[in-house]
Measured scan of single mutants.
Amino acid sequence: EPLWIRPDAPSRCTWQLGRPASESPHHHTAPAKSPKILPDILKKIGDTPMVRINKIGKKFGLKCELLAKCEFFNAGGSVKDRISLRMIEDAERDGTLKPGDTIIEPTSGNTGIGLALAAAVRGYRCIIVMPEKMSSEKVDVLRALGAEIVRTPTNARFDSPESHVGVAWRLKNEIPNSHILDQYRNASNPLAHYDTTADEILQQCDGKLDMLVASVGTGGTITGIARKLKEKCPGCRIIGVDPEGSILAEPEELNQTEQTTYEVEGIGYDFIPTVLDRTVVDKWFKSNDEEAFTFARMLIAQEGLLCGGSAGSTVAVAVKAAQELQEGQRCVVILPDSVRNYMTKFLSDRWMLQKGFLKEEDLTEKKPWWWHLRVQELGLSAPLTVLPTITCGHTIEILREKGFDQAPVVDEAGVILGMVTLGNMLSSLLAGKVQPSDQVGKVIYKQFKQIRLTDTLGRLSHILEMDHFALVVHEQIQYHSTGKSSQRQMVFGVVTAIDLLNFVAAQERDQK
């Protein structure tokens, strides 16, 4: 057995438009009618409502009807409940999964919650491996369901041993009777949507819809739904939504950006999952974080739909894509998950301010006199920076000697690579993860907040409520011999709460 199987392995699926269902090699399930009293909570997966979006479509000038398939009504709160249950049931049916076995899954959280929910009911041990950027709410729900959680670096490539995929496979090879159901490759993922989600949409719309818009992560949702719609409703256009920084969209030119990270969760990847059939997507749109969270908040405030950030991405694209539809036509959007997962993220004004998705003037509360002053007023001194090749031991000596707790790590040209902190280095040394002679590049981390000289002290204040420091950066445009230009970030300084307090105190003292 291989040590790991690539999540982007070539698909062996034989589905073709027009091929009889009787030739399918898979076990198919028909939607079942729910009894009045459910035998367990797993029976509350599927049969989610279709809700008309009344205000947002009109606000953006849509002539067509805009409908939302509300997947956050599933038992675990997301569309991923469907595939989690289906993968477990299919693994039980073919004898792969037996009582007492362990389920391991690399996930952005929602599939993990679905699997942990099913594992709690069915009696399996469950280990979820997820990147650090995923919300604390997801972690809390997983723990409450009895799952064990392993976190991995957000910026690790999918084929790196440190990625959530790599760590999951390492655990599988170490733990007896453990299984990775593997949402990236498992046919049960798109089949769950082909058999149930798509049929529900067709039934709820009486077979009449002209466009379907869905955000894409593993691709199982859009693949399964689109294949069924292509068979039953061939005139329906399928629109895929991919965040900026991901590479799922086609044509490839759409993916060209210097951005590699994004805040919206559960969609987009740096590889093409095996289950994603991009041939059934008629057109791709890219979405960005700001519009995703703005539209998610709009869905909550104006439509009462308590959905997550990827739902915002989907609707932001839908109001663009559906401009081509006329009166009497219908566009369906998939709202994948609930706001429950993001209470401390985009639902929080403070978080939105820190990330730059909300401006101070958007909030009406009274601010102190210094709130709208610029960061450049602080008069920061030149920063202490270190090269990635310097040793951890030497870096600790320098920081202690100069009285700093942290320093930016830059390359020879001064471009920011990340940050090192005294606390992080000492804990890594004590844990045996690094040696004093190791290069400081081994303990770089990139989960820090950046701020510009033109940003306000109010925004800085919000950042420092949650973080010990902020890195002050400025952009530099560099022209190359080819005539092309590129933008790079340079370090201007490091600012802490002490710097802000000293500035405010000094100004008030001078005024007296």
Score class of each variant (00 low, 15 high):
Glu265Gln: 05
Asp242Trp: 00
Trp284His: 00
Tyr445Gln: 08
Ser481Glu: 13
Gly403Ile: 07
Ala505Phe: 15
Leu248Glu: 04
Val473Leu: 15
Glu401Thr: 11
Gln489His: 15
Gly268Asn: 01
Ser437Arg: 14
Thr385Asp: 04
Met298Asp: 10
Asn502Gln: 15
Ala318Tyr: 00
Thr314Tyr: 05
Arg509Pro: 12
Ile444Tyr: 13
Glu361Lys: 13
Asn341Arg: 02
Pro336Asp: 05
Ala316Trp: 11
His462Leu: 14
Thr391Pro: 12
His372Pro: 11
Thr496Leu: 07
His468Lys: 09
Pro243Asp: 07
Lys402Cys: 08
Thr385Cys: 10
Pro368Arg: 11
Gln478Trp: 14
Val332Glu: 03
Lys355Ala: 07
Val409Arg: 00
Leu335Cys: 04
Ala249Gln: 04
Ala292Lys: 06
Ser313Asp: 05
Gln435Ala: 13
Val241Gln: 07
Gln302Trp: 11
Thr294Gly: 12
Gly245Pro: 03
Trp370Ser: 05
Leu426Asp: 04
Glu327Leu: 06
Gly266His: 00
Pro243Trp: 01
Leu426Ile: 08
Glu244Gln: 10
Thr421His: 12
Val434Phe: 14
Ile416Thr: 09
Ile390Leu: 13
Gly309Met: 01
Pro336Ile: 07
Ala311Tyr: 05
Leu430Asp: 10
Glu265Pro: 00
Ile272Ser: 08
Ile416Met: 13
Gly458Thr: 07
Ala292Tyr: 01
Glu360Thr: 12
Ile247Gln: 08
Glu244Leu: 02
Gln447Pro: 13
Ile416Pro: 08
Asn288Thr: 03
Gln256Tyr: 12
Ile238Cys: 07
Glu397Asn: 12
Val473His: 08
Ser437Phe: 15
Asp362Thr: 10
Thr274Ile: 08
Tyr479Arg: 12
Val280Tyr: 14
Asp438Thr: 08
Ile272Val: 12
Pro336Gly: 08
Val472Arg: 06
Ser437Lys: 12
Val494Gly: 03
Leu422Lys: 08
Asp455Trp: 08
Val440Gly: 09
Leu335Thr: 00
Gly240Ile: 00
Arg400Pro: 11
Met419Cys: 13
Ala382Arg: 11
Ala431Ser: 04
Arg340Lys: 08
Gln406Ile: 08
Leu429Trp: 08
Asn424Ile: 10
Asp438Ala: 03
Leu384His: 07
Ile398Pro: 03
Phe285Gly: 09
Val443Tyr: 14
Arg297Lys: 06
